[in-house]
């Protein structure tokens, strides 16, 4: 507990963000509500990614699969199962899927793991696409989904939960175990860390919240199309945000998501190509010049001014 309270600047920052998010629909209107929803979504996704990939060093390039599965659960049960059940169920199904694939997938290391996660996500995408085509549904419309304000409030809860989970993992015995796996998996195993169990738990935990986020975003767009929901760009954007923010702990995703959402607000509507080009350039730039991300840059600046 002491270690969590030591992170008071982070917790304060999170509370201020959440408060601003809650106030947004009342103060700034519909457009900014959607921007806040976007920001909360990316924070929740990137925090979840950090919980597994940031800590263990197993880079997942397929996190969109959990998002897509959650969305599919909510869409497929729409109007038959109440949303307060189906959205959490999306998270549960995504986590279960992660548990099932974890054992074979997590045996694979390094670059194989990275491209494997991507391959699994694409495979699931095309299987669901074929199921939907078989059912004769090229896309589905959702009528009577809740409004943006409700979705925003739930999304803020998810963003806080994901941030809290990552923060908790970082300071706990569990998190130190994960970090040890990143540094040297064989050594971690030798000193008695239950490597396989930790990896599987972290993987499933990092799938649950994206599953719920996917369900909420399906409700937000009131429209479901497999290729769009399982778009690999989502996975890539998560990784980019995590790298730009600094993927080591819970602070990075806040910075990374805020930075990229800000950039996309400036550019996406008028110059989507330019936005993508900058996304690519920033990713390259941060990997080469600032591998510890914005968090690292700010920390260095802080040390220099205080010194």
């Amino acid at each position: 507990m002491k270690e969590i309270t030591r992170n008071w600047p982070f917790l304060g920052c999170l509370l201020v963000l959440a408060g601003a998010g809650i106030a947004t629909p009342h103060l700034f209107g519909a457009y900014w509500t959607l921007v806040a929803l976007n920001l909360a979504m990316w924070i929740a996704l990137t925090q979840s990614w950090t919980l597994f990939s940031g800590m263990t060093g197993y880079i997942s390039l397929g996190h969109v699969v959990f998002y897509g599965i959650g969305a599919y659960v909510v869409v497929a049960t729409f109007k038959t199962v109440p949303l307060w059940i189906s959205v959490p169920m999306g998270g549960v199904v995504a986590a279960l899927f992660a548990l099932i694939v974890a054992l074979p997938v997590l045996r694979v290391r390094g670059p194989y793991f990275v491209i494997l996660t991507f391959g699994v996500a694409e495979l699931v995408k095309f299987i669901i696409l074929n199921i939907e085509t078989g059912l004769g549904k090229s896309s589905r419309l959702l009528f009577g989904a809740p409004g943006a304000q409700t979705l925003l409030y739930v999304m803020i809860c998810l963003a806080i939960a994901a941030s809290g989970l990552t923060l908790f993992a970082k300071v706990s015995r569990f998190g130190r175990g994960l970090t040890a796996i990143r540094e040297d998996e064989t050594a971690a195993e030798t000193v008695g860390i239950p490597v396989a169990r930790y990896k599987v738990i972290a993987f499933a935990a990092s799938a649950a919240i994206p599953g719920m986020v996917g369900g909420l975003m399906a409700l937000r767009s009131t429209y479901f199309e497999v290729l769009q929901v399982f778009n690999p760009i989502v996975s890539f954007t998560i990784v980019t945000m995590a790298i730009i923010g600094g993927s080591g702990d819970a602070r990075g995703p806040l910075f990374g998501a805020a930075f990229m959402v800000g950039l996309s607000e400036l550019l996406w509507a008028n110059a989507p190509r330019l936005y993508m080009i900058l996304l690519g350039l920033f990713l390259v730039g941060f990997v080469v010049f600032a591998p510890s991300g914005l968090v690292g840059l700010l920390a260095r600046r802080g040390r220099e001014t205080s010194a």
């Binding site: 390094g110 670059p111 890539f236 996304l279 690519g280 390259v284």
Partner: peptide, 26 residues
């Protein structure tokens, strides 16, 4: 480390891929 190099190269080439595709589209 080789692992670091492989991970970094993947991210770098992804960035390059996005840039190339969108520059060509532009």
């Amino acid at each position: 480390s080789v692992a670091q190099l492989e991970a970094n190269s993947l991210l770098l080439f992804f960035g390059i891929s996005v840039v190339l595709q969108n520059v060509m589209a532009l």
